[in-house]
Write a protein that binds this DNA or RNA. Sequence first.
DNA 1: CAAATTTCTGAAACCGGTTTCACTCACTTT
DNA 2: AAAGTGAGTGAAACCGGTTTCAGAAATTTG
Lengths: 341, 341
Amino acid sequence: MSGRITIQRVAELADVSKATVSRVLNGYPHVRPEVREKVQRVIRETGYQPNNIARMLASDRSSIIGFVISSSAQMVFHDPYFPALTEAVSDAAGDRGLIMALFMSHADGQGHRTVNSILAAGLFDGLILTADAKGSSIFPQQLAPDMPIVFIGRPSQADGMHYVDVDNVQGGYLATSHLIDLGHRRIATIGSNRNASGEDRVTGYRRALSQRGLAFDERLVAFGDYSLESGYASMQALLPYKPEAVFVASDTMALGALRALREAGLRAPDDIALVSHDDLPPAVQADPPLTTVQQPIARTGQLAVEKLERIIAQGGAVRAEKTILPVKLVVRESCGAVQSI
Amino acid sequence: MSGRITIQRVAELADVSKATVSRVLNGYPHVRPEVREKVQRVIRETGYQPNNIARMLASDRSSIIGFVISSSAQMVFHDPYFPALTEAVSDAAGDRGLIMALFMSHADGQGHRTVNSILAAGLFDGLILTADAKGSSIFPQQLAPDMPIVFIGRPSQADGMHYVDVDNVQGGYLATSHLIDLGHRRIATIGSNRNASGEDRVTGYRRALSQRGLAFDERLVAFGDYSLESGYASMQALLPYKPEAVFVASDTMALGALRALREAGLRAPDDIALVSHDDLPPAVQADPPLTTVQQPIARTGQLAVEKLERIIAQGGAVRAEKTILPVKLVVRESCGAVQSI
DNA sequence: CAAATTTCTGAAACCGGTTTCACTCACTTT
DNA sequence: AAAGTGAGTGAAACCGGTTTCAGAAATTTG
């Protein structure tokens, strides 16, 4: 693997010791410029590539991080959020010279097994986990207390955990406030109680209502699972209660909601105004384009990797710390604030 | 990493040599049953986990394979094909005790750089690459002639390459034949010339036409890039030529095509019959649900991993071999063969 | 100019496994 | 009973790097 030639061979050719070659390789000081140059020339001429595995063994660092998506395969398929997040983490890792190993843990209770085997591999410098769904918690901390771990999204047991999340409460709040500003009073929501993000967005919704003196009506709240179908079903369930506007907790569910409206012979925003959450590509493509709360996915992935790297560097002795990223409202047509062109 | 205790410690506790522990660990013969049991007990009691990195170094196998998606980020987002394929490869790798490292190489010409750095890592037992787009070929073979590589999809330079692909020609053929069977004569296609798959599907389309004695009309052929938008634009471009039916080379483009129809006040299948390709989840959700050619994505990923494993095991001395998987037509409503319920 | 530093450098230990090889020992063959 | 077999075992080499440590060489200081 990686060619025949080793550090030993380079050392011989350059007429120095392995130690010196290693110093040159890692840019350490205490090497005479001329020697350094000679070694570099040999390296160049031979095309020598250090064996990373040997390096890992000796330095006890692998530069590999695990990225575990602990959602059901269904969600990974239906919601572009995961591909987007995966790319963000992958990019961030690549930028920092880390290799990302991806694991998709299945919904059939294999979550633990997957994580177990990952940890057993003893191969990773650290792990990034997507926040678990409520009730199907993963606790790698118990299995490997020293493994550096960063969650993306608030885990169900957030105590002592590092995590990066977007301000979901603020997201729900901004979306709902916008609808109130537009004069709507009877505002429904399609949220989710599947994870912390969904709950937080509903919390923001309620906060906006109460702050503006609007009553909270239980019948105007539906819960989905982030799938298009659940958005569709939820909207159908809400229609009998005649909402004027709806805050949908994800773009994907909003697409389903739009379909339900269309089938009911209604149009957004004319008959029902709609604001969603995430600002993923489908939001722009939707008909009408969705007014939605933009969450900085790329930044989220980047911060998670940076945080993980920091924890790794400090040997895990970092106080658990959460990072909450701000969100912002992107106004398009589904809310009725601007005219369709 | 992976706890404190080493094979040396286990050996001491079990009062045997490292060699014997290693034999037990790997299930090798030539260990007395009682000794084997004693070692296993110590392993159990101490919770010993072998250090995989040391193992890799000694055995020159990492059990890590790289999966490189060499498409633009755009496509990865827009087309569920890639998440589906990624999951398939990830699952297949996991089933076989391999770890999958994911790389998304960008469209900005970084493709090569990504692959270079992957190879430089000297860490992978092998690579699975998604077929390159035409003109942006990746040639890791040149850089690392000994690296076992399997493509998914026919690469632009297929000579001497291992690859697994679905029968795209047959896909285009089946779809088009179906439309002909339904009585249509003026059949258009939205294909793609971005990669081999797209071209093959168009080839199948042409083959069906000629076999049934229908003339090929250049104006009835449009090319997209697998995005929803390109499907939309292509359909708009085709409408002036009044097709009775269209074969669209991907579900995602079909969604765009449907939108174009809707906006033109037309309906599928009544005004224009439509058959697409892939049978990904959106095909079912579409309105109307899409008649589409099903490609066995999970199987594709699985075969790619198995083939790669075989090449690795044989030290790369395997004659290049291609595997073409059959496809089948799934009839839903968009073609007009069955009545909407 | 001697003494004290500081800069370079290489030998050797080390990381934690796997694998080779020689040797012991019990059991078969002649 | 001597020789031949094969199973069972451990010592040691090995994988290819990094890191420690001590000593030589060069430089600064007194």
